[in-house]
């Protein structure tokens, strides 16, 4: 992962504008349509409350919630949650209908402090044997506030930038006979505050379709990097459709099958002149 990040950084240094080349990313089915979460961007709502999302906790008085404007990832709305003490956990959540299979629950959070839990969960006890799923991902810092600062200096916890949204992702295996599950995002028995935005819940894998058009430029190479892997997942020079040392057909289309929905790809098209054009999945996928 680290090596890949370095490669990407290095590439960024030599990128030159190549406005004519375009990279179009789509998925089959389209990501937006595949998203089963309702009001995933947190933009819908009325009377100060977001549509489809609600707070779940046994101690509501421990929490402060808001549907805040101007705090989202792109200056739009986000879900805000503040836990005053560690007496109880609390979560923004909604219920979605599901079919058996593999799913990905992902989204973005921003936090100042606290231990976060994002999980997809459900249980059907009306069948024998009962079935259920409980797929979790934790994030955050300073789970035990009483350790700070005497035992854990603030500097030790620096890492998550309180102004930056970070992604979370967890794979969910939905069993047979489980018609719905809940998506929950919140604070796990710690005081703290968090903002959530841009949730996606859908099939665990998708086909990624990359279409490169030269727009008058000649494209010589297409490379797809997985940010978690050192080696590229696709290089056109290894594609039998691309003549070695030659140019790519224009337009050129590649279908990467069964791409994890939470994969993070950097797609780089290189022209014969050495100019680079980049696109990122999933940010730029339609």
């Amino acid at each position: 992962m680290r090596m890949t990040a370095l490669i990407i950084a290095a590439l960024g240094l030599v990128v030159a504008p190549a406005a004519a080349v375009t990279i179009e990313l789509t998925t089959d089915q389209p990501r937006v349509e595949a998203n089963l979460a309702l009001n995933p961007a947190m933009e819908e709502g009325a009377d100060g409350a977001p549509a489809h999302w609600s707070l779940s906790t046994a101690v509501p008085e421990n929490f402060e919630t808001a549907w805040v404007e101007g705090e989202g990832r792109h200056g739009s709305r986000a879900l805000y949650l503040k836990a005053h003490e560690n007496v109880m956990s609390g979560y923004w959540g909604q219920t979605v209908a599901v079919e058996p299979g593999s799913y990905i629950f992902r989204g973005f959070y921003r936090t100042t402090t606290g231990r976060l839990l994002m999980y997809a969960h459900g249980r059907n006890t009306d069948v024998e044997p009962p079935v259920g799923v409980d797929a979790r991902v934790y994030a955050g810092s300073a789970i035990a506030g009483f350790l700070v600062p005497v035992f854990i200096p603030y500097e030790a916890l620096a890492g998550a930038d309180p102004d930056t949204y970070y992604p979370f992702s967890v794979q969910v295996e939905v069993p047979e006979r489980l018609p719905t599950i809940a998506l929950s995002m919140g604070m796990y028995f710690t005081p703290g505050e968090v903002w959530f935005d841009d949730v996606w819940f859908g099939p665990a894998t998708l086909d990624l379709i990359i279409r490169v058009a030269g727009g008058g430029e000649q494209v010589g190479k297409l490379t797809v990097f997985d940010e978690d892997e050192v080696d590229p997942v696709y290089v056109s020079t290894a594609d039998p459709r691309c003549p070695v040392g030659g140019l790519l057909p224009d337009p050129f289309e590649v279908r990467l099958e069964d791409v994890r929905a939470d994969a993070r790809y950097l797609i780089v098209a290189k022209t014969a002149d050495g100019d680079l054009t980049k696109a990122r999945f999933p940010e730029e996928a339609r």
Partner: peptide, 21 residues
């Protein structure tokens, strides 16, 4: 990893954390 993102944390941050714990 309950306190910090171990991947992101610097060695000196981890040392501070672990010594404190």
């Amino acid at each position: 990893d309950s306190f910090v993102d171990v991947e992101m944390a610097r060695p000196d941050q981890l040392r501070m954390l672990l010594r404190g714990l």
